[in-house]
Structures are given as C-alpha cells and as structure tokens.
Simulated scan of single mutants.
Amino acid sequence: MLLNFSKPKKYLLSVMKISVTLLLSGIFLLACSPSGDKPIERFQHAIEGSYAGNISNDGKWSVISSIHHGISVWDLEKNALTYQWAQKQDSSDNLVLAIDISNNNSHALTASRENFALWNMNTGQSEGYWQVRESNIRDIAVSNNGDYLLIGKGNGVVVHVAVDTGRRLEFLGHKEKINTVDMMPNGRVAMSGGNDFIAYVWDTVSGQVIYQFNHTSRVSQVALDSQGRFAFSADSMKSAHIWNLKTGKLITKLKGTKRHEVFSSVSFSPDGKTLVTGAASSKVSVWDVATGKRTANWRVTPKEANRPTGAVVYSLAFSDNNTLITESSSGYAELWRIPQAH
C-alpha cells in the first residue's frame, strides 16, 4: 500500500480550557492608532514568535503554534485565549508547522512533518491523531465539520481522508514534492501545487483532474475561494494568476510582482473584488481582482530583536470588505484598514 497511516491516537493529545484573560503568561494587548501603514490594533499572541498560524475565513478565530504556548486558540473578537492544545512536539523535526481552520469554524487541523491532529473548535477536544509513516507532510486543509482532511506530502502524493469512513484517496498527478494544498468547504474539490511547476484542481471523489494550470517554476501557493468563484496559483519566480473556478479560464495575472516575491498566504474578499497576499518578507499586498493591479502594500510588525528582523505573514482574513486581520511569525495579530482606491 502507498498509504501508511497509524490509527488515531487520542492519548497523545491534551487540551486545556483557558479562562478569558488578556494577561496570561506574558501575553497582552497593544492598541495602536491608525496612521498611514500602521495597524488599527495589534495583539501579541506569542511572546517570542510563532512557528505557524491560521485565521478563520471570517476573521473571528486564530490558531497558532508557538515556542512557549504550544497550540493556542484565540477568539479574535475578544482577544481571548480560549484553548491551549498539546500535540506531540518532541524534536525540531516534529514542530507543528501547518494549521488550517474549516470554513465554518467547526474544526482545526494541525500538523508537524510526521503527524496531524483534528480538533473540535466548539468543545476544544481532540477528535483524532494520525502518524504518517511514508514521506513527510508539506501542507494541509480541512473541510467543514472536520469531515475531510487533505494532506500534501513530500513524495508528490496528496491524500484526501474521509474521517468517518476512513476512506483515503491518493491524488498522484504530481511528479515532485507538494508545496501547497487547499480544499473547498464541502471537501469535494481540492487544489494542489508542487515542484513540478503545475497546479491542479481535482475532484476528491474520483481523483480526476478538473483543471491544470502550468507555471514556469515551482508552484509555491494555491488557494480556492470559499464561495467557489476563483482559484489562485503562484510560483516562486514572479508569476501569479487568478482563475475562474467555474470555467478554468484566466481572469488576470497579478501585475508588478517582483522576482522571488513568494507568497505565504492568500485571501479573497467577501465581495470578490479584492485579493490580499502575504509574503515571507513581511509584505502584505492588496490587489484588484478584475485588473490584477496592486492597489496598496505595507509590512507587518517584525519580531522584536536587537536589530531589525522580518516576519512571515502566515495568514490573513477579511473581517469585512475593508478590514483585514493578519497573523505573522513575529507573534502578532494585527488589524488593518484597507486603503480604498480613488
């Protein structure tokens, strides 16, 4: 068999309910006045930076993996630490480096290179733990209600898992390692990109390719609009595309992207007019979906240090069409007002 997961192991996970407080273990709220490219508000979620982070699609929840606090779940509307989860992290190769929250906020999926865990966001309890025995985990996605999991692996295989039945479908279209995956909220359509210069949109029931998007270098980021309007794919050089998910036709290419401007996060606005991207260079950019033009950009707060350092923008989400929340490796979540085009 090409698949080789262990059975779920719940005894390796622990969960703790956290009382609502803003002054816990050195974590506190910093408020900033809006000024130019400064955030409206800044929340410190990790005192010495984080390994990974994901914000829910509606901007209400954030899950981060950090040095001192394990996996932390934050209610962003209250800036309240709600849960702390413990997933086996016993070596530098086993740190939780990938996180995804389902579109309806019911579940979160967390993964290290070797294992992944499913969590119930309503109860705070674990619903399963699996270990990968072949290759390593590169990226993950979870559907609504935690029904389906998507695991992209270093051997070029993407695995779609139906949690209730245990059915596992392997997508074998890629020829080299997977860098990025995404999945529609119902779990029926997946997207993946790899080092073979290709992004695929594919059916998770049949494994059949729906669309193939070719790039000139390794595909570093893919994303599916949760409302089913768009797909996004970008490579490691300077090519980034917005596609019509219903037809597979190109809508636009992002204009003015820089060589090696590698995107680390992507989100579409609720009204479908705006795309925002985050980069490993701490840069956040706002793009017009129809024209592909960059309408604004700024940088998130870097990690505090004796000398200036950057920050990877792990995740970004719209709280409405004009307000954006970012979570970065510096340990800060930040609220931004998106400049309006004149």
Rank of each mutant, 00 (worst) to 15 (best):
G187S: 00
W130V: 05
A231S: 12
T252K: 02
N214A: 07
L172I: 08
A240N: 02
N214K: 13
E176T: 11
K253H: 13
E134R: 15
K175V: 11
V209L: 05
V262Y: 03
Q212N: 10
I140C: 01
N186W: 01
H260K: 07
D203K: 07
S143M: 10
V161G: 00
V201F: 08
V132C: 06
H160Q: 13
G156Q: 06
S206A: 03
A234N: 06
F171M: 02
I151S: 04
H174A: 05
V159E: 14
A199Y: 04
D147E: 15
S226H: 12
P185I: 08
A231K: 01
R259I: 14
D203V: 09
H260M: 06
G152D: 01
Y148A: 08
V132M: 05
L150S: 00
E176D: 12
G156V: 06
S220K: 10
S264Y: 06
V159Y: 10
Y200I: 07
A231C: 12
V219L: 01
V219C: 03
P185F: 06
S192E: 03
V205H: 11
A190Y: 03
V189S: 01
G194K: 00
Q227V: 04
D235C: 09
A199V: 12
I198A: 01
I137Q: 04
D164R: 14
G248C: 04
S220H: 08
S264Q: 04
W202L: 01
G166N: 00
